[in-house]
Design a protein around this nucleic acid. Structure first.
Lengths: 136, 136
DNA sequence: ATAGCTGCAAATGCTTTGCAAGGCC
DNA sequence: GGCCTTGCAAAGCATTTGCAGCTAT
């Protein structure tokens, strides 16, 4: 669960990630981090930022989503081939995916417990475990 | 685990799915179902069928992968935005995804046990549970 | 000043589609 | 014969990239 943050806190967050708080980047970061958990596609975020009256190109939205992800501020979730979601909740947790609407929703971590992980192949380590419950 | 099947069995399997055993479809079906579990992308299967000396277009590979999936002979697995895998194992099971190589591997079902499912949102039912352990 | 950032448009990569020709029952 | 299927090429879609001009520090 992300805390609601002020503009100033977000600027600090960006600086900590070594990302300049440019006008465009700040607008995107505020849309993403000022309120609680969000799951957005690049298109959706672009629509949001345009709706908020700011001018940001789609390419810049993509660039920034990836920079945020690299910085650990976002997590990419793949539910659908051909579309990426970005989740502001970077803690370990799982998802419901509403097939009808394309909406992605967090599952509270305690609600779904994974048993012991299976034996991994030789010389490998777990990077991440993705659990998606597809519902309709 | 899929049984090894003869050409004749595969033809029957196609007929049962109301799919004509055309030269191209049969070639694809044999590559997919004659040996055990396979995880392929359209590109890979296309390369396989060409390597086997048959002429099948990529469009036809896509068409057939989707027809097989609709018929319940394959299951589509999404691991990577922009690329679809098709799994000949249609039973409930989970996957390792090797990030370095792009290879997908089954996890024996007993090796990973899911606890109780979380409470679902109102008026929804589970279509499928996908578990992908990303390793490197 | 300068390294980083933005925006456009073009390019990419995978996938789908339109449609004429061919093949199975 | 009639309907399904195929193959090509074109279109589609989400995403990435090249690059000239802009901006934060």
């Amino acid at each position: 669960m992300n805390t609601i943050r002020t503009r100033t806190q977000i600027i600090e967050r960006l600086r900590a990630a070594k990302l300049r708080p440019t006008r465009q980047r700040l607008a995107l970061a505020r849309l993403l981090f000022e309120r609680g958990d969000r799951h957005v596609t690049a298109e959706q975020l672009h629509a949001d930022v345009i709706a908020a009256g700011m001018k940001v190109s789609l390419a810049t939205v993509y660039n920034n989503l990836h920079q945020f992800t690299r910085a650990g501020l976002l997590r990419e979730v793949v539910v659908d081939s051909g579309r990426s979601y970005f989740d502001t909740n970077t803690a370990s947790h799982f998802h419901f995916f509403h097939e009808a609407t394309g909406r992605l929703e967090d599952i509270p971590i305690d609600d779904l417990v994974l048993g012991a992980l299976p034996q991994l192949p030789e010389n490998t380590s777990v990077k991440r475990v993705d659990v998606i419950i597809r519902i309709r």
